[in-house]
Design a binder for these strands. Sequence first.
DNA 1: CTCTGTGCAAAGCGTTTGCAAACGA
DNA 2: TCGTTTGCAAACGCTTTGCACAGAG
Lengths: 133, 133
Amino acid sequence: MNNYTDILRQHNLKATPQRLEITNALYQAGHITIEKLYEIMHKKFNSISLATIYKNINLMVEASFIQEVKVPNAKSVYELTKDKHSHIVCSSCGDITDVDLDLDSIIKDAATISSHTIDRSDLVLSGTCKNCQ
Amino acid sequence: MNNYTDILRQHNLKATPQRLEITNALYQAGHITIEKLYEIMHKKFNSISLATIYKNINLMVEASFIQEVKVPNAKSVYELTKDKHSHIVCSSCGDITDVDLDLDSIIKDAATISSHTIDRSDLVLSGTCKNCQ
DNA sequence: CTCTGTGCAAAGCGTTTGCAAACGA
DNA sequence: TCGTTTGCAAACGCTTTGCACAGAG
């Protein structure tokens, strides 16, 4: 049992049952669309509103408690913020998995080539997962 | 002067003035949002409709003549399809530049770790460009 | 008790669709 | 000429907003 109550409060968010369930759903699913999240939430709170989902998702993104992942040719998914990682999407079943890749030298190259400072990297790989092959 | 007329036809798209101008705007801008594209188009065709822009953008994406780039915390941009490359976004001015990075070994690692096949990679780096620093 | 969060309904915004007229080949 | 494309208006779907009531601290 994770203590999301405290974590929410640390982000100045009251620990309402709805928020605890959103957090729990994100934890369970790993990556989830708004649509799917609403489905799950609706089972527990049959009168929940999509507005509540959106308001909370936006607050949680602002608080950097969760993050949006933009996926090519698909809807965005949300995940709990965790250590830096990349994503692999299966174009067939849509499943998304995390993968820990070392992008340091590539980012360093990019910074040199472009004269940019770089503070964020989003890598999404697409292909076919083992099950779908 | 690029011969987009022929290129459009090779993709089974009639070379209308509107399409030639969309293509030209993409070429000039490198990366462009729908909104900005409409602005530019409107100067040349004052009665152009957003519907025309959307229809053509969608056809061109389907034909792989252009591609959508999903940008964190910003609207998608479109670019002419060219050799594989990554993108660097300036969080300050919003400017997007192409950068040629070798992701081969990283992709290979990811394929091994995940047992996926990988046929596409989208890397978007974010930071601050030289001008904005 | 106070202030924040929820749920509802309405509004807002970006995108798509249907259709008649215009146009490219 | 024939099939495609354009522009308009309406429809659509996702997201946000305003407000009264409920609930967390």
